[in-house]
Design a protein around this nucleic acid. Structure first.
Length: 814
DNA sequence: GCAGCAAGGTTACC
DNA sequence: ACGGGTAACCTTGCTGC
């Protein structure tokens, strides 16, 4: 038979010693199917030029080793002309019946002095590469329907959807839009600790159903049609399973469901000795170990969008946290329902609605992000499950691995633990250049940016470990210091595969952007975003110690070229008598002075003509005014702290406490308003009056306590802290009270008045709900005044003096 | 007991 | 272990008097 399907998920199994890949997919008529496809895994042996290929081939072919309970013998060994790090090599492809054979065989050959490669490629990745059966790309399969098949020893029997044994799979010509069925869910439990208390309710949200399942009943009926009552917690779990079965979604999605909802559900099911069977192979939920466990269900792709947002989306969000509340507010314009767990627990209607809203937001967020997930999946070519959970480095690495075949390249091996440890010890390298600004208020300022500076360095100078060379005719970095020595690196002129991949992305994005100009499209924007993500992460990947294509030389060369060109551009503007106020990595700010905007753009054009390769500087924006301040303790200008107002009256504030979440709201607001007033008016008179007013109000306790809450994130396990700062003390208290405290938790506290005036800050720190008044002295001199004093300093206004004077006078007031 | 500085720590910028 | 370096600025903790 022949049919078309789209691969959503991949799994592997071992049937009588052979490797089969199970592809869970969907047919065009919307039916779920599972395709079995035989895979003969392989690895490579790269020959030394002096090796006799025939001899080595024979040795490998005759190898037969006993390993545990099985006899291992290579299926085949064939000689090929390949490339390794862009160089021509002779290599032997060794195919085996089962991936279990790879390690013992590879180890044995390695002992004989042979260079083994690609033995460490994940089986699914290998399958996708070898057979070109890409995720989310419609495929045409020829094969036969399985029905408790003797050839597979009935392996298909345990799978609840139709199974097909593939003979051949090829990409379909027709690629219609795939519209997945999604089920979002969210639980509410008695305790935060996994499995400790009962699950009170569980909300599901899909195209068909918006429901809360619960055993906790309320007398009220009308308006609560969305609530479905069950008799107890086991029945709730059963009901959930029933809905998952009935809905039979392609994707199950949650918010932090890898870390909370699914582990909790599993723990409760185990407690009742229930077998929870959500997938279609009777094997329940598999929990894979990692930094955070991930939960896999066969036949349904479980996507925890929290993780995806954390790594791929959040760098481009304004939100200060990646809580569901903040992210939904920014991406959907919708908030969670308000619910106070200590006060509202008994208001069940409120609780149900709160629970449902979480599932609804999760569902909506999923649909909003689906173009991004989908496009990244198609580009990187790894299964959806992994795409949502991979770090940047894994995305880049997989992107490279899935493209190597086009270059006839054999992959570099993963570094050993020992190698990783060694790389981590290698000294750091110099990064970007940041120019120190002179504090002051500037008028008519223009910002120029390099477009994708580091990717353009990679492509323009062919920077990759494979092109590092000692040839004379090459791209040579400017001289720079590395490990205390003056160095310079050379990269061959023949374009190597990683720069080529980056180049392709740049070209492709230009095309997409052109198309987007004519017609907006969520898919195309997502594609452009996914490509940008991969492209921008390549530099960091070179410098990442666990990367296959790690190269300190490359990472250091990229920043060296970057420093060189930004310096060149600064010089060029200065030669034409522009005052360069500031510069950070790839941006440059200058005052127009007596020149027109057009004159600056003409000069920009001329500079661009002189820049080599793909390197190009572009206009970011023109600004009416700009503020640069000094550092707190010295008169030197502070880097990475500035505020701008453009011609449309829009503000751009960078680095100031206003944008730092570990400062109290009032300090941030006062600074923000101060900056805005000054930028709008060009002087500090109104701002000064405003701040004086605020100081007065702080002293008379005219503000609400919550304006003084400080939020600081716990970055590691409580026990690992060497120095006990205020937020650590509070976290300890919270833990004792049974609140969930783990790395990543945002700790809220305020500094209170205490009898002991000289006490350390941490001794004055209190939880938000604790009794106590805010500490006037602390907030004035450690939050409010420090936030604005060096802004006023620009205008010769000494705020500390003003405040001190007032403080003397008003001492009796409190 | 205290000043002064280094270390620890968080958050931002690009 | 799960891109990178640069930088500001807080609090604690230690050293040396």
């Amino acid at each position: 038979m022949e049919l078309e399907f789209i691969p959503m998920d991949y799994d592997s199994c071992d049937i009588k010693g052979k490797n089969y890949i199970k592809i869970y997919g969907k047919t065009k008529s919307g039916k779920k199917i599972c395709i079995f496809d035989l895979l003969e895994p392989c690895f490579w042996v790269i020959l030394d030029p002096k090796d006799n290929a025939e001899e080595v081939l024979q040795t490998i072919n005759n190898k037969e080793i006993n390993y545990l309970d099985r006899k291992i013998k290579p299926l085949s060994a064939t000689l090929h002309k390949k490339k390794f790090m862009s160089k021509d090599v002779r290599a032997i492809k060794v195919a085996v019946t089962n991936s279990k054979d790879i390690n013992p065989l590879a180890e044995m050959l390695e002992k004989q002095g042979l260079a083994i490669h690609e033995q460490d490629i994940n089986l699914i990745t290998r399958y996708i590469i070898e057979k070109n059966v890409r995720p989310l790309v419609w495929q045409k399969v020829n094969g036969r329907v399985l029905n408790n098949d003797p050839e597979l020893f009935g392996a298909d029997k345990e799978i609840s959807c139709d199974c097909i044994l593939a003979e051949q799979i090829t990409e379909s010509k027709d690629q219609p839009v795939f519209q997945p069925k999604v089920l979002a869910f969210d639980i509410e439990s008695e305790e935060f600790e996994i499995g400790k208390g009962k699950i009170i309710m569980l909300a599901i949200a899909s195209h068909n159903e918006k429901k809360v399942i619960t055993w906790k009943k309320t007398a009220k009926k009308e308006g609560l049609e969305f609530v479905e009552y069950v008799k107890d917690e086991p029945a709730l779990l059963e009901k959930f399973q029933e809905y998952v079965r009935k809905e039979d979604p392609d994707f199950l999605t949650g918010y932090f469901s890898d870390g909370f909802d699914l582990p909790y559900i599993r723990a409760r099911a185990e407690y009742y000795k229930m077998k929870l069977d959500l997938g279609c192979d009777g094997k329940g939920i598999k929990f894979l170990r990692g930094a955070i466990n991930s939960a896999k269900i066969s036949g349904i792709v479980h996507m925890d969008i929290y993780k995806f947002i954390d790594t791929v989306i959040s760098p481009n969000l304004q939100s200060e946290t990646i809580s569901l509340d903040d992210v939904a507010a920014e991406l959907l314009g919708e908030k969670k329902h308000e619910f106070d767990f200590s006060a509202d627990q008994e208001d069940l209607e409120k609780f149900y609605r709160y629970n449902l809203q979480d599932a609804l937001l999760t569902e909506k967020l999923f649909h909003k992000l689906w173009p991004n997930i989908q496009e990244l999946c198609k580009i990187v070519q790894e299964p959806l499950f992994d795409i949502c959970r991979d770090s940047y480095s894994q995305l880049v690495e997989n992107y490279i691995l899935h493209n190597l075949l086009r270059f006839n390249e054999i992959a570099v091996n993963k570094p050993s633990h020992h190698e990783i440890a060694e790389r981590r010890l290698r000294s750091k390298y110099e990064g970007a250049l940041v120019k120190q600004p002179v504090p002051g208020l500037y008028e008519r300022v223009v910002f120029f940016d390099f477009t994708s500076l580091y990717p353009s360095m990679i492509t323009s100078f062919n920077i990759s470990p494979a092109s590092l060379t000692s040839e004379k005719d090459c791209h040579k970095t400017p001289e720079f210091e590395l490990n205390g020595k003056k160095v310079s690196f050379c990269f061959s002129r023949e374009e190597s595969f990683i720069p080529k991949l980056v180049h392709e992305i740049i070209t492709l994005r230009k095309e997409i952007k052109k198309q987007l100009k004519d017609a907006p499209s969520a898919i195309l924007s997502a594609r452009s975003y996914a490509l940008k993500t991969i492209m921008n992460a390549t530099y960091g990947y070179y410098g990442f110690f666990a990367a296959r294509y790690y190269s300190l030389e490359c990472a250091a060369s990229i920043t060296a070229f970057g420093r060189f060109y930004i310096t060149e551009v600064i010089k060029k503007f200065e030669q034409k008598e522009y005052q360069v106020v500031y510069s950070d990595t790839d941006s440059i700010a200058l005052t127009l002075g007596d020149k027109t905007e057009k004159e600056s753009l003409d000069l920009l054009k001329k500079i661009n003509e002189e820049l080599p390769g793909e390197i190009s500087l572009e206009l970011e924006d023109f600004y009416l005014r700009a503020i640069f301040v000094s550092k707190r303790t010295t008169t030197a200008g502070a880097k990475k702290k500035y505020a701008l107002i453009n011609k449309q009256g829009q503000f751009k504030i960078r680095g100031f406490e206003t944008v730092r979440r570990n400062w109290c709201n009032l300090a941030r607001e006062v600074q923000n308003k101060t900056i805005r007033m000054i930028l709008e008016q060009g002087d500090a008179e109104r701002a000064k009056k405003y701040v004086e007013e605020v100081i007065k109000k702080v002293k008379t306790r005219a503000f609400d306590k919550k304006e003084f809450l400080i939020r600081t994130q716990l970055r590691k396990e409580l026990l690992e802290y060497k120095s006990i700062s205020p937020h650590v003390i509070i976290a300890q208290k919270m833990k004792e009270l049974g609140f969930p405290v783990r790395p990543g938790t945002l700790i809220e506290f305020f500094i209170a008045e205490t009898r002991e005036k000289k006490a350390m800050v941490r001794e004055k720190a209190k939880m938000p709900q604790e009794k106590g008044e805010y500490n006037i002295e602390y907030y004035l001199h450690h939050q409010i005044i420090p936030a604005v004093e060096n802004i006023f300093e620009i205008f010769g206004i000494n705020l500390q003096e003003i405040s001190e004077g007032r403080k003397q006078k008003s001492l009796g007031d409190f």
